[in-house]
Simulated scan of single mutants.
Amino acid sequence: MRAAKLRWVLSTFLAASALTLGLVQPASATATAGERYVALGDSYSSGVGAGSYLSDSGSCQRSSKAYPSLWAAANAPASFAFTACSGATTSTVRSGQLAPLSSSTTLVSVTAGGNDVGFADVMQTCVLQSEATCVNAVNNAVAQVNGTLPGSLSSLYGAIRSRAPQARVVVLGYPRFYQLNGTCIAGLSETERAAINRGSDALNGMLAKQAANAGFTYSGVVDEFTGHEICSANAWLHSLTVPVSNSYHPTAAGHSGGYLPAFRSVV
């Protein structure tokens, strides 16, 4: 009897040790193999600024270094459809990117909203015009965030849910763009940089609220990009650069070190 009990204790200990050491993988380790993943959104999902654009993506500039491509490469889902496109709004995502969604889709990611409130125009205004004009442009964008954007997001999220009723949907936010009192010695004023950050915070707050209303998961990227904003010593965002389309977008490091961890943390 003692020998049998000893064998039972030993086998139990060895099984527990194997799990601890990773010799026996829990079922969740292979759960992603059955995922049917669709990546939607604007340039922050397509990967503008990350380089290595896929040859068939044209002006959408979908990158093999964008977070959806990186996640798919690491997890080998059962299927992967990448329809995110540079310049997309909530309306164009809804009208032009949802075709791959179906009742068998299990996972969706999306970034959308920045183009709806004219982010690119705000940045152009801040670069080319006065501080007061820049701050006013940010205030106008925030007014749109609180005014028309909620309805636009609700329409998009409703369309996603209708087409992919079983999917987990992850809404990702946008970085806070500037490290205040950072290393920049020229360019925008601190007042302008603070205003732009405030606008980004307002947008992210609305995305989180509307995602919750839709029963989706919101994952912000502000924490991941902290210490890697423009004017930091190790920026993961392009400042004003050539080509201009890369400006104010994440670098490849911003996708691998910022967006990918934020997405992976909730999937």
Rank of each mutant, 00 (worst) to 15 (best):
G96D: 12
C126G: 08
Q97K: 10
G87E: 11
T105E: 02
F82T: 03
G51I: 11
A31R: 13
S95I: 12
G34K: 15
V48L: 15
T32E: 02
G118N: 03
N115H: 03
V48I: 13
W71N: 00
P68V: 00
N75F: 06
A73W: 00
E131I: 12
S102Y: 02
V122M: 12
D121P: 01
A99H: 09
Q97D: 14
A31I: 10
Y44N: 06
Y53E: 07
S103E: 11
D42E: 13
A29W: 09
N75M: 03
Q124L: 13
S52I: 03
G113K: 02
G41Y: 15
S28L: 15
T30M: 07
A132C: 07
S103L: 06
G49R: 10
S69D: 06
A39D: 09
V48F: 07
T30P: 00
D121T: 13
G49A: 10
V93R: 04
A33G: 05
G58K: 07
Q61R: 13
W71V: 00
T32K: 10
G41C: 13
T125L: 06
C60V: 09
A29G: 03
L70H: 00
S59C: 03
G51A: 11
S43Y: 15
A33M: 11
T32N: 10
S69Q: 06
L98W: 04
Q25S: 13
A27T: 07
Q25F: 08
C85Q: 13
Q25K: 13
T111C: 03
T106M: 04
Q61G: 02
R62Q: 14
P26R: 11
L40Q: 12
G114F: 04
S69E: 09
L107P: 00
S64R: 03
V48C: 08
S59Y: 14
Y67A: 02
P26G: 05
L98I: 11
L98K: 07
Q124G: 09
Q97N: 11
C126A: 14
S91R: 14
F119R: 03
T90V: 13
W71T: 00
S64I: 01
A33Q: 13
T125E: 08
C60N: 05
G41H: 11
S59A: 15
S79C: 05
D121L: 08
A76W: 07
S64Y: 03
G114D: 00
G113P: 06
Q124T: 14
A78M: 09
S52A: 15
N75T: 10
F119M: 12
G47Y: 08
N115G: 06
V93P: 05
Y37H: 11
S103H: 04
T89R: 09
Q61C: 05
S64K: 02
G41D: 14
S45A: 15
Q129K: 12
A27Y: 05
P77T: 07
S109W: 02
P68Q: 05
F119S: 01
Y44P: 02
